[in-house]
Protein backbone atom coordinates (compact mmCIF):
# COMPACT_ATOMS: atom_id res chain seq x y z
CA UNK A 1 0.00 0.00 0.00
CA UNK A 2 1.39 3.40 -0.93
CA UNK A 3 1.86 6.22 1.55
CA UNK A 4 -0.91 8.19 -0.14
CA UNK A 5 -3.39 5.41 0.36
CA UNK A 6 -2.54 5.30 4.03
CA UNK A 7 -3.09 8.97 4.54
CA UNK A 8 -6.21 9.30 2.45
CA UNK A 9 -8.54 6.29 2.78
CA UNK A 10 -10.55 5.46 -0.33
CA UNK A 11 -13.95 7.08 -0.66
CA UNK A 12 -16.77 4.53 -1.00
CA UNK A 13 -19.60 7.04 -1.21
CA UNK A 14 -19.62 10.60 -2.42
CA UNK A 15 -22.62 12.90 -2.47
CA UNK A 16 -22.37 16.15 -4.44
CA UNK A 17 -24.73 19.08 -3.83
CA UNK A 18 -27.81 16.92 -3.30
CA UNK A 19 -31.19 18.66 -3.11
CA UNK A 20 -34.75 17.50 -2.64
CA UNK A 21 -37.86 19.55 -2.22
CA UNK A 22 -41.26 18.34 -0.94
CA UNK A 23 -43.83 20.96 -1.89
CA UNK A 24 -42.90 24.03 0.10
CA UNK A 25 -40.22 22.34 2.17
CA UNK A 26 -36.61 22.11 1.09
CA UNK A 27 -35.79 18.83 2.83
CA UNK A 28 -32.26 18.53 1.49
CA UNK A 29 -30.45 21.62 0.34
CA UNK A 30 -27.15 21.26 -1.49
CA UNK A 31 -25.81 18.52 0.75
CA UNK A 32 -22.31 17.20 -0.06
CA UNK A 33 -20.44 14.51 1.82
CA UNK A 34 -17.85 11.79 1.51
CA UNK A 35 -17.76 8.48 3.32
CA UNK A 36 -14.42 6.74 3.75
CA UNK A 37 -14.36 3.03 2.94
CA UNK A 38 -14.26 0.90 6.07
CA UNK A 39 -15.43 3.66 8.41
CA UNK A 40 -18.35 4.03 10.75
CA UNK A 41 -19.73 7.50 10.19
CA UNK A 42 -22.43 9.10 12.29
CA UNK A 43 -25.03 11.31 10.65
CA UNK A 44 -26.61 13.54 13.28
CA UNK A 45 -28.69 16.66 13.40
CA UNK A 46 -31.91 18.04 14.87
CA UNK A 47 -35.32 16.68 13.87
CA UNK A 48 -36.21 17.68 10.35
CA UNK A 49 -32.57 18.24 9.35
CA UNK A 50 -33.07 15.90 6.38
CA UNK A 51 -31.05 12.92 7.59
CA UNK A 52 -33.56 10.23 6.65
CA UNK A 53 -34.27 11.97 3.35
CA UNK A 54 -30.57 11.84 2.51
CA UNK A 55 -30.64 8.07 3.15
CA UNK A 56 -33.76 7.68 1.07
CA UNK A 57 -32.13 9.58 -1.81
CA UNK A 58 -28.84 7.66 -1.63
CA UNK A 59 -30.59 4.29 -1.54
CA UNK A 60 -32.64 5.13 -4.63
CA UNK A 61 -36.07 5.13 -2.97
CA UNK A 62 -36.48 8.75 -4.02
CA UNK A 63 -34.90 10.63 -6.90
CA UNK A 64 -32.98 13.80 -6.05
CA UNK A 65 -34.04 17.06 -7.71
CA UNK A 66 -30.40 18.05 -8.13
CA UNK A 67 -27.07 16.47 -7.28
CA UNK A 68 -24.91 13.46 -7.90
CA UNK A 69 -24.39 10.32 -5.86
CA UNK A 70 -21.29 8.22 -6.52
CA UNK A 71 -20.92 4.76 -5.05
CA UNK A 72 -17.46 3.38 -5.61
CA UNK A 73 -16.90 6.03 -8.26
CA UNK A 74 -20.05 5.17 -10.25
CA UNK A 75 -23.10 7.40 -10.53
CA UNK A 76 -26.07 5.76 -8.82
CA UNK A 77 -28.49 8.67 -8.65
CA UNK A 78 -31.50 7.87 -10.80
CA UNK A 79 -31.08 4.10 -10.39
CA UNK A 80 -34.09 2.31 -8.91
CA UNK A 81 -33.70 1.12 -5.32
CA UNK A 82 -33.22 -2.56 -6.14
CA UNK A 83 -30.39 -1.75 -8.55
CA UNK A 84 -28.65 0.33 -5.89
CA UNK A 85 -29.02 -2.51 -3.40
CA UNK A 86 -27.55 -4.96 -5.91
CA UNK A 87 -24.38 -2.89 -6.00
CA UNK A 88 -24.01 -3.56 -2.28
CA UNK A 89 -25.53 -0.42 -0.81
CA UNK A 90 -28.24 -1.44 1.61
CA UNK A 91 -30.39 0.65 3.91
CA UNK A 92 -32.40 -0.22 6.99
CA UNK A 93 -35.61 1.51 7.96
CA UNK A 94 -36.17 3.79 10.93
CA UNK A 95 -39.47 2.13 11.78
CA UNK A 96 -38.76 -1.60 11.55
CA UNK A 97 -40.36 -3.08 8.49
CA UNK A 98 -40.71 -6.69 9.43
CA UNK A 99 -42.71 -8.78 6.97
CA UNK A 100 -45.50 -9.38 9.44
CA UNK A 101 -47.13 -12.55 8.14
CA UNK A 102 -43.81 -14.28 7.47
CA UNK A 103 -41.89 -16.11 10.14
CA UNK A 104 -38.73 -14.53 11.51
CA UNK A 105 -36.71 -17.15 9.63
CA UNK A 106 -38.57 -16.47 6.38
CA UNK A 107 -37.89 -12.77 6.80
CA UNK A 108 -34.23 -13.62 6.33
CA UNK A 109 -34.60 -16.51 3.91
CA UNK A 110 -36.16 -14.28 1.28
CA UNK A 111 -33.03 -12.13 1.22
CA UNK A 112 -30.36 -14.08 -0.76
CA UNK A 113 -30.31 -13.45 -4.47
CA UNK A 114 -30.71 -14.93 -6.95
CA UNK A 115 -32.69 -17.92 -5.74
CA UNK A 116 -33.47 -20.72 -8.17
CA UNK A 117 -36.56 -21.49 -6.09
CA UNK A 118 -37.90 -18.03 -6.86
CA UNK A 119 -38.06 -18.78 -10.58
CA UNK A 120 -40.96 -20.56 -12.28
CA UNK A 121 -38.68 -23.44 -13.23
CA UNK A 122 -37.73 -23.62 -9.56
CA UNK A 123 -41.41 -23.86 -8.63
CA UNK A 124 -41.84 -26.76 -11.06
CA UNK A 125 -38.75 -28.44 -9.63
CA UNK A 126 -39.70 -27.85 -6.00
CA UNK A 127 -38.53 -30.90 -4.12
CA UNK A 128 -35.68 -31.46 -6.56
CA UNK A 129 -32.23 -31.74 -5.06
CA UNK A 130 -31.20 -28.34 -6.41
CA UNK A 131 -34.03 -26.43 -4.76
CA UNK A 132 -33.80 -28.41 -1.52
CA UNK A 133 -30.06 -27.90 -1.24
CA UNK A 134 -30.41 -24.20 -1.97
CA UNK A 135 -33.06 -23.90 0.71
CA UNK A 136 -30.95 -25.81 3.21
CA UNK A 137 -27.99 -23.54 2.61
CA UNK A 138 -30.09 -20.40 2.88
CA UNK A 139 -31.75 -21.67 6.04
CA UNK A 140 -28.42 -22.51 7.60
CA UNK A 141 -27.08 -19.06 6.91
CA UNK A 142 -30.30 -17.37 8.10
CA UNK A 143 -30.10 -19.32 11.36
CA UNK A 144 -26.48 -18.26 11.80
CA UNK A 145 -27.44 -14.63 11.41
CA UNK A 146 -30.36 -15.09 13.81
CA UNK A 147 -27.98 -16.62 16.33
CA UNK A 148 -25.67 -13.64 15.93
CA UNK A 149 -28.44 -11.21 16.79
CA UNK A 150 -29.92 -13.50 19.43
CA UNK A 151 -33.21 -14.18 17.67
CA UNK A 152 -32.59 -17.87 16.95
CA UNK A 153 -35.20 -18.95 19.51
CA UNK A 154 -37.78 -16.81 17.74
CA UNK A 155 -37.06 -18.27 14.27
CA UNK A 156 -40.47 -19.89 13.80
CA UNK A 157 -42.50 -17.05 15.25
CA UNK A 158 -44.55 -14.70 13.13
CA UNK A 159 -42.51 -11.51 12.73
CA UNK A 160 -45.55 -9.42 13.72
CA UNK A 161 -45.43 -11.01 17.19
CA UNK A 162 -41.91 -9.82 17.99
CA UNK A 163 -41.36 -7.03 20.51
CA UNK A 164 -40.29 -3.59 19.35
CA UNK A 165 -36.68 -4.25 20.28
CA UNK A 166 -36.66 -7.64 18.57
CA UNK A 167 -37.96 -6.01 15.40
CA UNK A 168 -34.99 -3.64 15.54
CA UNK A 169 -32.73 -6.69 15.78
CA UNK A 170 -34.47 -8.27 12.82
CA UNK A 171 -33.84 -5.10 10.82
CA UNK A 172 -30.09 -5.40 11.53
CA UNK A 173 -30.23 -9.14 10.82
CA UNK A 174 -31.74 -8.50 7.39
CA UNK A 175 -28.93 -6.08 6.67
CA UNK A 176 -26.35 -8.69 7.77
CA UNK A 177 -28.02 -11.26 5.57
CA UNK A 178 -27.54 -8.94 2.58
CA UNK A 179 -23.77 -8.86 3.11
CA UNK A 180 -23.59 -5.29 1.82
CA UNK A 181 -20.47 -3.22 1.26
CA UNK A 182 -22.10 -0.09 2.61
CA UNK A 183 -24.93 -0.13 5.14
CA UNK A 184 -27.08 2.90 5.88
CA UNK A 185 -28.59 2.34 9.33
CA UNK A 186 -31.48 4.65 10.13
CA UNK A 187 -31.74 5.07 13.93
CA UNK A 188 -31.06 1.45 14.82
CA UNK A 189 -31.36 2.11 18.57
CA UNK A 190 -34.32 4.50 18.64
CA UNK A 191 -37.02 3.53 21.13
CA UNK A 192 -35.06 0.58 22.49
CA UNK A 193 -34.37 -0.13 26.16
CA UNK A 194 -30.82 0.62 27.44
CA UNK A 195 -29.65 -2.99 27.80
CA UNK A 196 -30.68 -3.77 24.25
CA UNK A 197 -28.83 -0.66 23.05
CA UNK A 198 -25.59 -2.30 24.20
CA UNK A 199 -26.46 -5.42 22.22
CA UNK A 200 -27.25 -3.37 19.14
CA UNK A 201 -23.95 -1.49 19.41
CA UNK A 202 -22.15 -4.83 19.57
CA UNK A 203 -23.99 -6.07 16.50
CA UNK A 204 -23.17 -2.97 14.53
CA UNK A 205 -19.51 -3.54 15.49
CA UNK A 206 -19.82 -7.12 14.27
CA UNK A 207 -21.31 -5.95 11.00
CA UNK A 208 -18.43 -3.51 10.65
CA UNK A 209 -15.88 -6.17 11.53
CA UNK A 210 -17.26 -8.20 8.64
CA UNK A 211 -15.94 -5.56 6.26
CA UNK A 212 -19.03 -3.38 5.94
CA UNK A 213 -18.73 0.40 5.79
CA UNK A 214 -21.43 1.93 7.95
CA UNK A 215 -23.28 5.23 8.00
CA UNK A 216 -25.60 5.54 10.96
CA UNK A 217 -28.27 8.09 11.78
CA UNK A 218 -28.36 8.29 15.55
CA UNK A 219 -29.80 10.61 18.20
CA UNK A 220 -28.18 8.90 21.15
CA UNK A 221 -24.84 10.74 21.50
CA UNK A 222 -23.51 8.01 23.74
CA UNK A 223 -23.94 5.51 20.91
CA UNK A 224 -22.36 7.92 18.45
CA UNK A 225 -19.34 8.35 20.76
CA UNK A 226 -18.92 4.62 21.15
CA UNK A 227 -19.26 3.68 17.50
CA UNK A 228 -18.27 6.48 15.19
CA UNK A 229 -14.85 7.68 14.19
CA UNK A 230 -16.32 10.46 12.09
CA UNK A 231 -19.49 12.50 12.52
CA UNK A 232 -21.36 14.64 10.00
CA UNK A 233 -23.88 17.16 11.31
CA UNK A 234 -26.83 18.05 9.11
CA UNK A 235 -28.98 21.09 9.69
CA UNK A 236 -31.77 22.36 7.44
CA UNK A 237 -30.81 19.98 4.69
CA UNK A 238 -27.11 20.84 4.48
CA UNK A 239 -23.90 19.79 6.13
CA UNK A 240 -23.20 22.19 9.00
CA UNK A 241 -19.91 20.70 10.10
CA UNK A 242 -18.07 17.43 10.46
CA UNK A 243 -15.21 15.97 12.44
CA UNK A 244 -14.39 13.50 15.17
CA UNK A 245 -17.07 12.95 17.83
CA UNK A 246 -14.98 14.97 20.31
CA UNK A 247 -14.71 17.92 17.92
CA UNK A 248 -18.44 17.84 17.25
CA UNK A 249 -19.32 17.78 20.94
CA UNK A 250 -17.32 20.95 21.50
CA UNK A 251 -18.71 22.77 18.47
CA UNK A 252 -20.99 25.63 19.55
CA UNK A 253 -22.87 25.72 16.28
CA UNK A 254 -23.97 22.14 16.84
CA UNK A 255 -25.22 22.99 20.30
CA UNK A 256 -27.12 25.99 18.97
CA UNK A 257 -28.70 23.93 16.21
CA UNK A 258 -29.97 21.35 18.70
CA UNK A 259 -31.16 23.85 21.30
CA UNK A 260 -32.45 26.44 18.86
CA UNK A 261 -30.80 29.77 18.16
CA UNK A 262 -30.18 31.96 21.19
CA UNK A 263 -31.10 35.61 20.56
Amino acid sequence: MSADALREPATILEVRSLSKRFGGMQAVNGCSLRIAAGSITGLIGPNGAGKSTVFTLISGFLRPDVGEILFDGHRIDGLPAHRVARLGLVRTFQTPRELRELSVLENLMMVPRPQFGESLVGVMLLGSRRVRREEQEIEKRALEVLRTVGLDHQARRRAADLSGGQKKLLEIARCMMCQPRLALLDEPTAGVNPSLINDLVEMIRLLHAGGVTIVIIEHNMNVVMRLCEHVIVLDRGEVMCEGTPEQIQRDERVLAAYLGSVP
Binding site: H82, R97, S119, M124
Partner: peptide, 30 residues
Protein backbone atom coordinates in the same frame (compact mmCIF):
# COMPACT_ATOMS: atom_id res chain seq x y z
CA UNK B 1 -49.37 -25.65 -9.45
CA UNK B 2 -50.64 -22.90 -7.15
CA UNK B 3 -50.02 -25.01 -4.05
CA UNK B 4 -46.51 -25.75 -5.22
CA UNK B 5 -45.87 -22.09 -5.87
CA UNK B 6 -47.22 -21.17 -2.45
CA UNK B 7 -44.80 -23.56 -0.75
CA UNK B 8 -41.87 -22.65 -2.99
CA UNK B 9 -39.40 -19.85 -2.27
CA UNK B 10 -41.27 -17.85 -4.93
CA UNK B 11 -44.43 -17.96 -2.79
CA UNK B 12 -42.45 -16.66 0.15
CA UNK B 13 -41.17 -13.79 -1.95
CA UNK B 14 -44.64 -12.93 -3.26
CA UNK B 15 -45.95 -12.77 0.31
CA UNK B 16 -42.99 -10.55 1.16
CA UNK B 17 -44.02 -8.23 -1.68
CA UNK B 18 -47.59 -8.27 -0.39
CA UNK B 19 -46.41 -7.37 3.11
CA UNK B 20 -43.98 -4.60 2.20
CA UNK B 21 -42.57 -4.15 -1.25
CA UNK B 22 -39.99 -1.56 -0.21
CA UNK B 23 -38.28 -4.22 1.92
CA UNK B 24 -38.05 -6.45 -1.14
CA UNK B 25 -36.58 -3.57 -3.17
CA UNK B 26 -34.17 -2.74 -0.35
CA UNK B 27 -32.54 -6.17 -0.56
CA UNK B 28 -32.03 -5.83 -4.31
CA UNK B 29 -34.95 -7.69 -5.86
CA UNK B 30 -36.99 -6.20 -8.67
Amino acid sequence: FNERLRRAPLGRLLRAIREDESVVASIGKS
